[in-house]
Computed example of a mutant assay.
Amino acid sequence: MSSKKFSLLMFGLSKLKPTSARGVLRGAAGRSSYSWTAVCQQRSSGTRRAVSTSSTTVDPGEVKRFQSLSNKWWDEQGGFAALHAMNDLRVPFVRDNLLTVHSAHHPGKPLAGLRILDVGCGGGLLTEPLGRLGASMLGIDPVEESISVAQLHSSPDPDLCDQVSYQACTLEQLSDEGEKEQEEQSKAQFDAVVASEVVEHLADLETFAICCNHVLKPGGSLFITTINKTNLSFALAIVVAEQLLRIVPSGTHDWEKFISPVELECLLESNGFLVQSVQGMMYNPISGAWSWTNSTSINYALHAVKKSDGAEDSCTHSEFEPAASHS
């Protein structure tokens, strides 16, 4: 598709009005409020939920799909090219937000001394660069084939041998193991959890949020990148990216699993998190590059921190101020 045709397509699609909740752009310095009373009132007011033994984040259909794609993770020109390019945004997003809390004492290794969990790590596309920044990384994924690819790719690199490890398991399995270890030595907690382009593939977001809270230290950070649930995201992420341009493998996304920033924030804040910032992201298939944008109507990045015990749950407030729209 030529640049001119793509520009005309983008102009036409931009006229679509999203029908779902509107995204909210916020900086760490100041937080906006929003009208989401009905959803929030359905949430428990600060009560810690136990993870049911039947609750799982894993969708068997998604596992089967990624099993068939596992040998393509490190093809930078293939179906995961956009994820490779996204590192230009998501690596600094994680690094810079962590450095606002944890001062760097190791030149060239700003994340040294931090333990980070990469949930749904796939072939290790984000795990490896964070490990190169000094973080002690654990990448987990329920797809064993993807974990094998990640292990094989990192094994020849001496800089990653002591920094990166992988485990074929689910987040809830790791959370259960972590709780047992915490009872003994308090070793299984992380300074940060990253889940990049993952939540739109999960079967149960409530379980995801609960387990992230379990494995994080108090004040630990949760980083998420995902896709908003709007008409525009359906048009671009599925129709254009998968069916027309074929820059993403067909069937990768299910629009019904997309989630708006407002919904995601409410879910997180009712499960022990405080959202610090939400920022829009845009992918240009012509240049193959990502950029930050004021609009969260397609892709967005979110940073949240685990609340201290007894912190106020802002998602249960009875009154909300109207939020600005960024569609």
Rank of each mutant, 00 (worst) to 15 (best):
E184F: 11
T47P: 01
L133P: 05
K4W: 15
C121N: 03
V239S: 06
Q189N: 07
S277L: 13
R115Y: 01
E172G: 07
S70W: 01
A135R: 01
T19C: 10
Q185V: 06
K17M: 09
T47S: 13
G288D: 00
L264V: 11
G220K: 07
H105W: 03
E184N: 11
H84G: 02
V198Q: 01
S45W: 13
Y166S: 06
F11H: 15
N284H: 13
A168V: 13
M86T: 00
G79W: 03
V199K: 03
E206A: 08
D157E: 14
V199P: 03
V239D: 07
L302T: 05
V278M: 14
D118P: 02
H317E: 10
I210Q: 12
P218T: 14
S35G: 12
E321M: 06
L236Q: 05
D88K: 04
S154H: 10
T56I: 06
F273H: 07
S327I: 00
S32D: 11
H201F: 09
W290Y: 04
S260F: 10
D176N: 10
D88C: 00
L222W: 05
I140D: 02
G122N: 07
D88P: 00
P107M: 05
R246N: 10
Q189V: 09
S314N: 02
R43G: 11
E145V: 01
E312Q: 08
G113A: 01
F320T: 02
G79S: 11
D204N: 15
K217W: 01
S175W: 12
I298V: 14
D141L: 07
G23K: 09
C212W: 07
L99A: 00
E319P: 00
R49P: 06
K4M: 15
C211I: 01
A195V: 04
A82F: 05
L222T: 04
P218Q: 12
L302Y: 04
C40Q: 15
L160I: 14
I247V: 14
G123H: 04
S148R: 13
L152W: 12
R132V: 02
V305T: 15
D141W: 07
G251E: 09
D159K: 11
L268A: 11
S196C: 07
C121W: 06
V305A: 11
M10H: 10
H214V: 02
L13I: 15
G120S: 06
V94K: 00
S250C: 12
L245P: 06
D162S: 15
T53Q: 12
R246C: 14
A301L: 11
Q276R: 14
A135L: 05
D157F: 12
S221T: 07
L126W: 00
A289K: 15
S233P: 08
H201L: 09
E321A: 10
L16Q: 08
L302P: 05
D309W: 00
P60F: 07
V51R: 15
V194S: 09
T53W: 05
P92M: 00
K257S: 15
I286L: 11
S250V: 14
P218W: 05
G122Y: 07
S318I: 02
L202S: 02
F190R: 04
W74P: 02
M281Y: 07
W36E: 12
K17P: 00
P156Q: 13
R31H: 10
S33Y: 09
H153Q: 14
R65H: 14
V305N: 11
L111E: 01
G113N: 03
L152G: 12
K5G: 03
C121D: 03
C161H: 15
L138A: 04
S148Q: 14
P142V: 08
